Simulated scan of single mutants.
Amino acid sequence: MPARSRTTARRAPATRAQREPRKPVPPSALTTASLDEHDLTAESGFERLGFADLDLSERRAGAVEFSQCRFDKATLSGSELPRLGLTDCLIENCDWANLRAEGGKLDRVRVAESRMTGLTWTDGLVRDALFDRCRMDLSVWRFADFDTVRFSHCNLAGADFTNADLRTAQFVECDLTRAQFSNATMEGTRFRGCTLVGIAGVTSWSGAVVHHSDLLALSYALAAALNIRIDED
C-alpha cells in the first residue's frame, strides 16, 4: 500500500471527550437533480440539490463535492470517486455498494438504511457522522480519521479499520464479526451491544470502552491473539 499522505496531520494519541455527532443542516427547500444537468464529472460541485431515484453507478470522477444535498434511493454503486466530499448531507435508502472514495471527506452527514457493502474510504476523514441501520459489511476504512462518529445497528462484518483513528467513534448494536482493527488508535472508542466474534487486531484495543455485555466475545478474541488455549472441561 502506498505511504499515507496525511501522516503529519494525524492526531497524537490522547483521551478525547465523547459527544454526539452534530446534525447536518440541509436547506428547507432543495432543487431536484437530474442526470442531464447534474451528472458526475471531475471537480464538479453540487449544492442544495435533491438526488432522488437517480442512477449514478459506475462513474469515474475525482474531487466531486456535495454540500447541503439529500440522497434518497440514489445509486453510486461501483463508482470511483477519489477525494469525494460530502458536507451537511442526508443519505437515505441508497445503494453505494463498492463505491471507491479514497481520500474522501464526510462532514456532518447522516446515512440511514443504506447499502454500502464493500465501500472503500481509505485515508479519508469522517467527522460528525451517523450511520444508522446500514449494511456496511466488507467496507474498508484503512488510515481513515474518525472524529465524533456513531455506527448504530449496522452490519460491519468483515470491515477493515486497519490504522484508523477511532478514538471518538461509537459502535452501538453493530455486527463486527471478523472486523479488522490492526494498528488502530482506539483510546476512548466505545462498544455497546456489539457482535465481536472473530475480530482481528484486538491488541490495538488499549483504552477502548466496552460494555460488560460484550466482554465474553471479546475475551475469546483476546485469548486467540495471545495464543491462550481455553479448557472447557
Rank of each mutant, 00 (worst) to 15 (best):
V209A: 00
T203M: 15
A97L: 03
T15Q: 11
R59E: 04
L226W: 08
R108H: 09
E58K: 12
R19K: 05
D107V: 08
N93F: 14
E113C: 11
D55W: 08
G193C: 03
K73A: 14
G193V: 02
L35A: 03
V111Q: 02
S219D: 15
L106Y: 02
L84Y: 02
L86Y: 03
W141D: 00
L130N: 08
R6D: 13
T148A: 09
S57E: 04
D160P: 03
A74I: 03
G78I: 03
R110F: 15
S114P: 07
A225R: 00
Q170S: 08
A63Y: 10
D128C: 07
S34D: 06
E20I: 05
W96H: 07
R150K: 11
V202A: 10
G104E: 00
A225Y: 01
S213R: 07
D137C: 10
S34A: 02
F151Y: 05
N183P: 01
A33F: 00
T31E: 14
S204D: 01
L81H: 00
C69P: 06
L90Q: 08
T185H: 09
D165K: 00
L138K: 11
S182E: 13
A29K: 13
M1C: 09
P82N: 04
H153E: 15
S219I: 04
I91D: 05
G78A: 01
F66S: 03
L84T: 05
E187Q: 14
M136Y: 08
R135M: 12
K23Q: 15
L196A: 02
C174K: 03
Y220Q: 11
L215K: 07
H38Y: 00
L196M: 05
A17D: 02
L86E: 05
A12T: 12
A179Q: 06
N183Q: 15
E173N: 14
E187R: 09
D72L: 15
S213E: 10
Y220R: 12
S219T: 14
M1S: 14
T117G: 10
S44V: 00
E173W: 12
D147C: 05
C89W: 09
N163T: 09
